[in-house]
Computed example of a mutant assay.
Amino acid sequence: MTEGRSLSPEKIAEDLSYRIIRGGFLPGEKLRQDHIAEEFRVSHVPVREAFLRLVAKGLAVSKPRHGVRVAPLDPDAQREVKVMRLALEPVALMHSVPQLTPAQIGAAEEARRHCDACENIFDWEAANRAFHMATMAGCAMPRLLEEIANLQLLAARYILVHYKDRWRPRIDPDHHALMAAIRRKDPRMATSILERHLSRLN
Rank of each mutant, 00 (worst) to 15 (best):
G67A: 12
R143M: 12
I171A: 10
A50H: 10
I20E: 06
I159D: 15
G28K: 07
W124G: 08
A111P: 03
L194N: 06
G67Y: 08
L198S: 03
M141Y: 08
H44K: 07
M84K: 13
R53P: 13
A149M: 06
G106F: 13
L160P: 13
A60K: 11
R196Y: 07
D116N: 12
C139S: 14
A190K: 09
V42C: 01
L145F: 04
H132T: 04
M84G: 08
E109Q: 05
R85F: 00
A117V: 01
H197D: 02
A180P: 06
L88C: 08
G67H: 09
E3C: 01
G106S: 09
E119G: 04
A155H: 04
S192I: 00
G4D: 15
A137E: 14
R157H: 09
Q152L: 06
M133I: 06
R200E: 15
P187W: 04
H114T: 12
W167K: 00
L54W: 10
K82Y: 00
V68Y: 14
R184P: 13
L201A: 14
G24E: 05
L88F: 11
P102Q: 11
I20G: 04
S17F: 14
A111G: 02
F51L: 00
P9T: 09
H176W: 10
T135Q: 03
K185Y: 06
M136Q: 10
S43R: 03
G106D: 11
A177H: 05
A140W: 03
R157A: 08
V42T: 07
A130W: 02
N128G: 12
S192D: 02
G23A: 00
H132N: 13
N128D: 14
A117M: 06
Q104Y: 00
V161E: 07
E109D: 07
A134N: 05
A181D: 08
E89H: 11
E89C: 14
V91K: 10
A140V: 01
P72L: 05
A137Q: 13
L178H: 03
P27G: 06
E146G: 13
